[in-house]
């Protein structure tokens, strides 16, 4: 338990720094801006209660907001995503449920499962985020285009990070 808390705290700090210091400087065409930090929320354990999940998502979002001066937009998107997470997990759950002591990651559940699960989570987050950011529906299609393109980029990064950072762990 303590071990788990430590692991996720380290992941939290690492992802915030990675997001703020490196990824926010990537803005291809002014459209594509990957938000890898939501990987923290995606990878929290299955057993975590929904209220704690939302609280953590809120803290995560507000810390990113602090650095980007977006004030609550990331937090709102993160909380929304955290709330929908349990439904998405239920939708994708295997016939006999998830094994205990595992987390939603590529190494436990395979590429197909993880790809579909994380894609939906990323899409939900980006959809909420970009539409709150734009705050109007007149630019619906250009905003939607940004959602799609950024989502693809974020998903790509998430999959790569799974292979680079988390796959290496269980080999030890």
């Amino acid at each position: 338990m303590i071990n788990n808390i430590l692991k996720h705290s380290v992941r939290f700090v690492f992802l915030v720094l990675l997001q703020v210091l490196i990824l926010n400087n990537i803005q291809l065409n002014g459209f594509i801006n990957p938000y890898l930090y939501i990987l923290f929320i995606i990878m929290l354990p299955f057993e975590i209660p929904v209220w704690l999940l939302m609280l953590l998502a809120f803290v995560m979002g507000i810390s990113i907001d602090m650095f980007l001066n977006t004030m609550g937009i990331h937090a709102a998107a993160c909380v929304f995503m955290a709330y929908t997470r349990s439904y998405v997990l239920n939708f994708f759950s295997p016939r006999d449920g998830y094994e205990s002591n595992t987390e939603p990651s590529l190494e436990y559940l395979g590429l197909t499962w993880f790809l579909s699960y994380s894609s939906i989570m990323v899409f939900i987050h980006h959809f909420v985020f970009f539409f709150i950011e734009a705050f109007r529906l007149t630019e619906f299609f250009s905003t939607f285009f940004r959602v799609i393109v950024s989502s693809v980029f974020t998903i790509l990064l998430i999959i790569i990070s799974q292979y680079v950072a988390f796959k290496g762990k269980d080999k030890r």
Binding site: L55, F58, M71, A75, A76
Partner: peptide
């Protein structure tokens, strides 16, 4: 709880 958090976020925004 979700609604409360979102309301707070919207308030911030």
């Amino acid at each position: 709880f979700f609604l409360l958090l979102e309301i707070f976020c919207v308030y911030l925004i």
